[in-house]
Design a protein around this nucleic acid. Structure first.
Lengths: 175, 175
DNA sequence: AGAATGCGTCAATAGTGCTGACTTAATTCT
DNA sequence: AGAATTAAGTCAGCACTATTGACGCATTCT
């Protein structure tokens, strides 16, 4: 007979599998993939005394030069206080600079400096290489599928924000 | 006229684009996708006073019941001290239990309880649904491509570990 | 017996995120 | 013009995850 212990304290000895109706394989792979994806820039950032948050700010300031603090907060979905420390450090180290908004002088438009641009590119280079290498291991129209998939993983109300992005197409025929 | 300021303090007004040889589009999508991917379980976890680390521990204990503390540390790539608090809470709340290792009594084999199994499934459900929905939005053999891609994104030395987990496990000992 | 291993724990620190509240300056609304 | 609102900066305090280094205990290996 099977054990009759009904208490919740009994150990379960069988592994959960995808048959439970949940795609554990992809869930797990997504975790591993993202962890390793961020590991390269994380190591570089440590040399500057920076963290992953600095990378994200640097990334979006380079992607959308001139965005305001409020816009940046909206993209990152963090609070002003979380951004404050990180942004201040990037300003102090000359990676980012602020210009007063032309129409609304309360606003601060954020721009990368040459140093900030260089760092952003350096941080993204290993990530891009990892992606590129991974795609070449996959057959067929992998890049298109992966891009569609990742976009579909994002909350619908945020996709407009992504599409509004200045850069589109390319990277396929570029190298 | 364009500015002639050569110093690194000058603002760069043009956005980085994929033509710089870097696949910013996928880098960015990966960030957004992973953030939203983790947001559903994060909200649930907050109700228990848990964080994302609890989810990861719970996940792997459910995926590989009976794994030892050392094995768990190896999979998660964190330190013993980082695991300690999280694991203790999961033990205290009856989501996980420990059994003394049968061959080596120093070891602690980790097993989910029914409660722990339930929580793991509940946390993964929205993630799995998100993945499933995203895949149906993509045409063709998307799942295969995505799985291959994600696996290829993982550091090579860790891929063996991943492949070892599906269901061909646990048939070597035990009653 | 002595060395090494598996685990738990203590102390201190860093990075990222949160809430709430308050100030300043500039813009908008009435 | 005066009031209300908005953009940004800042202060204080807290939570979670992660780090390094060190020590103790039990068990296993040599």
């Amino acid at each position: 007979m099977l054990k009759e212990i009904t208490a919740e304290e009994a150990p379960i000895r069988d592994a959960v599998v995808n048959e439970d109706g949940i795609d554990f394989t992809l869930i797990e792979l997504f975790f591993f993939a993202y962890r390793d994806f961020t590991s390269d820039p994380d190591q570089m950032l440590a040399e500057y005394g920076f963290g992953r948050a600095h990378h994200r700010v640097l990334h979006f300031v380079n992607r959308r030069p001139g965005l305001t603090v409020a816009e940046l907060l909206d993209v990152l979905k963090i609070t002003k206080q979380s951004l404050a420390r990180v942004l201040k450090q990037l300003l102090d180290t000359g990676h980012i600079m602020q210009l007063q908004g032309p129409r609304d002088r309360r606003q601060r438009e954020l721009y990368p400096t040459a140093r900030g641009r260089d760092l952003a590119l350096a941080l993204s280079r290993p990530q891009s290489r990892r992606i590129h290498d991974a795609l070449t291991e996959v057959d067929g129209e992998a890049r298109k599928s992966v891009e569609q998939f990742l976009k579909a993983m994002v909350n619908p109300e945020l996709r407009a924000q992504i599409d509004a992005d200045p850069s589109h197409r390319g990277a396929d025929d570029e190298e």
